[in-house]
Amino acid sequence: MSAHFPSLGRRGLRRLATGTLAVALLGALSACGSSDDSADSAGDATAKASGVSGASGAFPAKVDTKFGTVTVESRPKRVVALGWGDAETALALGVQPVGQSDWLAFGGDGVGPWAKDLYDKSPEKIGTLEPEYEKIAALKPDLILDVKSSGDQTRYDTLSKIAPTVGVPEGGDQYKTGWKKQTTMVAQALGLADEGEELIAETEKKFTAATKEHPEFKGKTITVGSRSSAGWGAYVHGTDRVDFVEQLGFENNPVVEAEAGEGFSVTVSEENLNMLDADLVVMAPIGIEASKISDDKLYRAVPAVKDGRSVVFDAANISQAFATNTVLSIGYALDEVVPLFAEALK
């Protein structure tokens, strides 16, 4: 199995974005407006010239967000993707952003190896937590994607003065926009709703195959956490990493969930590392060596870790794919982490 869609590859993704793919997985996606055949043909020609291939949607397109309904009047030619994984989602739909944020410091084009070579021209890099607004404005975007971000009102207000901005959905604050919602919203904004549904359907098939192969995951509790120079933490329901394991049948650690607030994780003190204990403990290093987790005496004393029911990601690509959780990275992550989970639970 390849890093993302094994039956598609790069050319397949391009073809995917030029067909009219009627997959009703999520029901009807909202897109408003209409155009005649000649207008559609002219729009297709303009879109292909700007790196946007395919035209399954009509314009103006409307996308519901936390900040209200955003209207995209015509097919965007210059897209800036700022949210976590927004650029990869656009690339999966055949659209190459002119600017993007590199949240996980991949370098290069700012995307993981599962999205390698999907850019014809490298995008301008934009800051993450504090976007460089002048740089964004200089790119003259006609659409800004900020679908998976903090949901900060000031951030949104500033971006929307530059170009129509698709921000977080209701309930999507603090990076809690799931990959399906992200794909749906980005696809709607780009006029590629049908293609978005197809990508979601393909990704769902991968999860279904993994759960069928590993029924032992169902109902098992799991802690998904990390350690950085700042300390230990565990992720909560509604975030990418937990969403991923829940789709495999796991249940997030109830002790962690009891501490959940508005953020995407909870802090775990060294004296309380037993809070991590579950049927399976999965940890990722952030800015430190993996050995800082696996060799830590207090961590090794956690009951699940003592029993060998622990996975510490020691390869950057695996940890990054697991964290990115887009329609491009999920296939790669499933291939890599599912065998690790299964082995640890034996």
Rank of each mutant, 00 (worst) to 15 (best):
2 S>K: 15
2 S>I: 13
2 S>P: 12
3 A>F: 13
5 F>A: 04
5 F>Q: 09
7 S>Y: 12
9 G>F: 05
11 R>F: 12
12 G>P: 08
13 L>F: 05
13 L>V: 07
17 A>E: 04
17 A>V: 07
18 T>K: 12
19 G>I: 05
23 V>A: 10
26 L>V: 13
26 L>A: 15
36 D>W: 02
42 A>Y: 10
51 G>M: 01
55 A>H: 14
61 A>S: 08
62 K>Q: 14
64 D>A: 15
65 T>C: 00
65 T>E: 00
66 K>Q: 14
66 K>C: 10
66 K>M: 12
69 T>R: 10
72 V>G: 04
76 P>V: 00
78 R>Q: 03
80 V>W: 06
80 V>I: 05
81 A>P: 00
82 L>C: 00
84 W>K: 03
90 A>R: 04
91 L>R: 00
92 A>G: 11
94 G>N: 01
96 Q>C: 02
100 Q>F: 12
100 Q>N: 15
101 S>F: 05
107 G>I: 07
107 G>D: 07
109 D>Q: 06
111 V>A: 07
111 V>N: 06
113 P>Y: 02
122 S>P: 09
122 S>W: 07
122 S>R: 11
128 T>S: 09
131 P>A: 05
133 Y>V: 12
134 E>M: 07
134 E>Q: 10
135 K>C: 03
138 A>M: 04
142 D>C: 04
144 I>G: 04
147 V>M: 00
148 K>A: 12
149 S>C: 12
150 S>D: 00
155 R>H: 09
157 D>C: 08
162 I>R: 12
162 I>T: 03
166 V>Q: 09
167 G>H: 03
170 E>S: 14
171 G>A: 08
176 K>Y: 07
177 T>W: 01
177 T>Q: 01
178 G>S: 15
179 W>V: 09
181 K>V: 12
181 K>Q: 15
182 Q>M: 06
183 T>C: 06
184 T>Q: 15
189 A>H: 02
199 L>T: 07
199 L>Y: 06
203 T>N: 02
209 A>D: 13
209 A>K: 12
210 A>K: 06
211 T>K: 14
216 E>K: 11
216 E>D: 11
217 F>N: 01
218 K>T: 13
222 I>P: 02
228 S>T: 11
228 S>K: 10
229 S>V: 12
232 W>I: 01
235 Y>H: 15
238 G>I: 03
241 R>T: 04
241 R>I: 01
243 D>P: 09
244 F>C: 01
245 V>A: 09
246 E>L: 00
246 E>N: 06
247 Q>A: 11
250 F>H: 06
255 V>S: 14
256 V>R: 05
257 E>V: 03
259 E>D: 14
260 A>D: 06
261 G>F: 07
268 V>Y: 05
274 N>Q: 14
276 L>P: 05
280 L>E: 05
285 P>T: 01
288 I>R: 02
293 I>H: 08
295 D>M: 10
300 R>D: 14
306 K>Y: 09
308 G>I: 09
308 G>F: 08
309 R>H: 14
309 R>M: 07
312 V>E: 09
314 D>N: 15
314 D>Y: 05
317 N>I: 14
326 T>N: 06
331 G>V: 05
336 E>Y: 10
339 P>M: 03
340 L>Y: 03
341 F>S: 02
343 E>K: 15
345 L>N: 01
346 K>S: 10
346 K>C: 07
